[in-house]
Simulated scan of single mutants.
Amino acid sequence: MSRVLQLSLTALLGLALASPALAEVIVLPNGHAEAAKLSKQPTRGMTMQQVRSRFGAPLKELAPTPTAPNYPTITRWVYADYTVYFADKHVIHTVVHSGKASQPAASGKP
């Protein structure tokens, strides 16, 4: 194998392995992929104080998980219908518990 081809393949493999893995829960009530959402839930960027003020105290506050150096501390608050994930003191994601998402309106598409 030529040196150029070998370096190119190594670079491509490095890029593929460096890509972050993403996952999202989806609901397919009418065959169209949509993120599970509630009519009222915390949104990205809200502070812990804003979430507590607007949605009340969580049922459970899970201790911060240890992370690698230079990464934010991840904390989870569990509510009846969803779990809120915080990086340091800000919402990064809200995960709706299974079966709690409201069904999206039919879009008229087959």
Rank of each mutant, 00 (worst) to 15 (best):
Val4Arg: 12
Ile26Lys: 03
Pro20Val: 10
Ala18Arg: 03
Thr43Phe: 03
Leu28Lys: 08
Arg52Thr: 04
His32Leu: 06
Ala21Asn: 14
Val4His: 07
Ala35Val: 08
Pro42Glu: 07
Arg44Met: 10
Arg52Met: 08
Pro69Trp: 06
Ala101Asp: 10
Thr10Pro: 00
Ala21His: 13
Lys37His: 13
Gln50Cys: 09
Ile26Glu: 01
Ala68Gly: 03
Thr43Ala: 04
Val4Glu: 13
Gly99Phe: 06
Val27Met: 07
Met48Phe: 06
Ala105Thr: 03
Met46Asp: 04
His97Asn: 09
Gly31Ser: 11
Gln6Trp: 12
Gly14Thr: 08
Ala63His: 04
Arg52Asn: 07
Ile26Met: 03
Pro64Met: 02
Ser107Asp: 15
Leu17Gly: 14
Val84Gly: 00
Thr65His: 04
Ala23Ile: 04
Gly14Glu: 08
Gly31Arg: 08
Ile74Lys: 02
Leu15Thr: 02
Leu59Trp: 03
Thr75Asp: 02
Pro110Phe: 15
Ser98His: 07
Leu15Pro: 01
Thr73His: 03
Gln41Leu: 10
Gln50Met: 13
Ala11Met: 11
Ser19Gln: 14
Phe86Tyr: 11
Arg52Ala: 06
Pro58His: 01
Ala21Phe: 12
Asp88Cys: 09
Glu61Ile: 04
Lys60Cys: 00
Ala101Thr: 07
Gln50Asp: 13
Arg52Trp: 05
Leu59Pro: 02
Thr47Ile: 14
Gln103Val: 14
Tyr79His: 07
Pro66Ala: 04
Asn70Gly: 03
Met46Tyr: 03
Ile74Pro: 02
Ser53Val: 13
Val84Met: 03
Ser98Ala: 12
Glu34Arg: 11
Gly45Ile: 06
Ala101Gly: 06
Thr94Ala: 06
Ala106Phe: 10
Thr65Gly: 05
Tyr79Ser: 02
Gln103Thr: 14
His93Ser: 06
Ala105Ser: 05
Val91Lys: 00
Val95Ile: 07
Val4Tyr: 07
Leu38Gln: 14
Ala16Trp: 12
Ser98Gly: 04
Ser19Ala: 15
Val84Phe: 00
Thr10Leu: 15
Leu22Ser: 15
Leu38Met: 14
Leu13Ser: 11
Arg76Glu: 03
Lys40Tyr: 12
His90Ile: 13
Pro42Met: 03
Arg52Pro: 00
Thr47Cys: 12
Gly99Pro: 03
Gly31Asn: 10
Lys100Met: 14
Ser53Gln: 15
Ser53Pro: 05
Ser8Lys: 12
Val51Lys: 02
Ser8Cys: 10
Ala63Lys: 09
Pro69Phe: 09
Ser53Lys: 15
Pro29Met: 15
Ala23Gln: 08
Ser98Pro: 01
Pro29Gly: 15
Ala80Ser: 13
Glu34Ile: 05
Leu62Arg: 08
Pro69Thr: 10
Glu34Cys: 04
Thr73Gln: 07
Pro110Gln: 15
Pro42Thr: 05
Lys100Val: 08
Ala11Arg: 06
His93Trp: 06
Lys60Met: 01
Asp88Gln: 14
Ile92Arg: 14
Phe55Ala: 01
Pro104Gln: 11
Leu5Met: 13
Pro42Ile: 01
Glu61Gly: 01
Ala21Arg: 14
Glu24Trp: 02
Gln103Phe: 09
Leu5Gly: 12
Ile26Asp: 01
Leu17Gln: 15
Gln41Glu: 15
